[in-house]
Write a protein that binds this DNA or RNA. Sequence first.
DNA 1: GAATATAGCAACCGACCGGTCGGAAGCTAA
DNA 2: TTAGCTTCCGACCGGTCGGTTGCTATATTC
Lengths: 208, 208
Amino acid sequence: MSPRKSAAEARATRRRIVERGVAIASVDGLEGLTIGRLATDLGMSKAGVLGHFGTKETLQLAALDEAAAVFVRAVWRPAEDAAPGLPRLRAVCEAWIAYLESERETFPGGCLFATASVEFDARGGRVRDAVVRLGRLWRRRLAGEIRLAVAAGDLSPDTDPEQLTYEIVGLYLVLNQDLQLFADPRAPERTRRALARLLAPGASAAVA
Amino acid sequence: MSPRKSAAEARATRRRIVERGVAIASVDGLEGLTIGRLATDLGMSKAGVLGHFGTKETLQLAALDEAAAVFVRAVWRPAEDAAPGLPRLRAVCEAWIAYLESERETFPGGCLFATASVEFDARGGRVRDAVVRLGRLWRRRLAGEIRLAVAAGDLSPDTDPEQLTYEIVGLYLVLNQDLQLFADPRAPERTRRALARLLAPGASAAVA
DNA sequence: GAATATAGCAACCGACCGGTCGGAAGCTAA
DNA sequence: TTAGCTTCCGACCGGTCGGTTGCTATATTC
């Protein structure tokens, strides 16, 4: 019909594909993200879609990268302005809750990482590797903020950053489950309450 | 080849199908559980497999039921002997950890419910309903044990059973993620440490 | 022992999967 | 103006999906 070829338009098309792909994958998983479905949704041919990536796996990785960018923009970027230590740690945690709560708008099917980490936890391949890498990255960042808070004297010096990170991640996983599977609006408050206890000034809840 | 028809043998065949189905689904999800794959694995025809269930959805529900039976046998049944209150609550929690830890043997791909609850959290249908129903059931049972512990005076009277249940479930979700995705052997100890704090005698960690 | 019920098979259906190929339509550079 | 590059399409590939049909062989029932 309308073969456009300017580099700018091609980039825009690619972005449209990836964005729609993230939306589909958040509902049906990265395996359920099919090229035919994507083509139909965007009113293009399968070859036109696949031409931008070459392989379904590359398309999956592109969707994962885009989701990571959205996550960084929503959770980590806003907290950068907060003062290092407990204030910034709290800002990250609150932004994370808001991200999961408002996800229905960005990603119709909930956090893509929660989905992908379960979908690929028993497989091999580059997608799984990317999921593992990103999961480790968020945890490292979170542990880093916790260490800053300990260094600033905001948290007890015998805090175990990895242990605290672990427990916080658990609170986000159950939050995602309650929002997506049970559609329970009380879940964010529950996570906030648990976080308030874990992140109380001078708290030594998660110790070595 | 060998059309057998005794009711007993048919029942055994059905059981073989369901057991293999649970193993496949724990790796590839309940959607990735395909009839052709199941038939190949068991050395039967697709029609022979499907004849026992009629529909893939019914097969998925059967796999889910079987997984639920295994879960009850591994987690709830052993704790029945423990004294009501904190001892039984602790027995359930410890059995749950052991269940997730040793899952590689029973379910090669990890807890089927963790997989299924993410896989179907953005869909409709009978399978999703069953997942929701089972998820609510485990939580209700866990909250019941917590209430018994409160009534026995083992936990602080201002404990919020739903809040505590929520936090414990989070600890199992992150445990499952760390075992399956990151293959981190330190995870069980982390969950144990967090549980020890939440379930300390007289603890009032999760209050209303 | 005959009638009935059923477990399982082989073959097949339309739909969709990921992916390939040749060509058409436009942008860009010489 | 033209040559070359890129985007995208339509048609097609082999294969798998869930599911159906017609059949045979056996177990069970009478």
